[in-house]
């Protein structure tokens, strides 16, 4: 099992959230978007400039900036 920040998750790969390092309102926001530990996340596509990246999270496609995705740790199985 390999751990990495969500921002490094390769396209079309699925990871499972293990922890969040964001704090305060940013943390609240990520949790509200469904990024709680145990959630499966798939990197769906990346914008031409390489940032942001669209992720499939609990049935919705949500784009996250690299700086936010950096604060989420996922494990690859």
């Amino acid at each position: 099992m390999q751990e990495m920040p969500l921002s490094k998750l390769p396209l079309k790969k699925r990871g499972v959230v293990t922890s969040l390092s964001a704090e305060g309102m940013a943390r609240r926001r990520l949790l509200d978007l469904g990024l709680v530990p145990g959630t499966a996340v798939e990197a769906v596509r990346r914008s031409p400039a390489g940032d942001p990246t669209a992720f499939s999270i609990r049935g919705a496609i949500i784009a996250l900036r690299k700086e936010d995705a950096d604060k989420i740790t996922v494990s690859l199985h």
């Binding site: 509200d32 469904g34 999270i57 609990r58 049935g59 919705a60």
Partner: peptide, 11 residues
């Protein structure tokens, strides 16, 4: 709530 992704909506 959206029936197709209920879990996300229950928050």
């Amino acid at each position: 709530a959206d029936a197709t992704c209920l879990e996300r909506n229950l928050n």
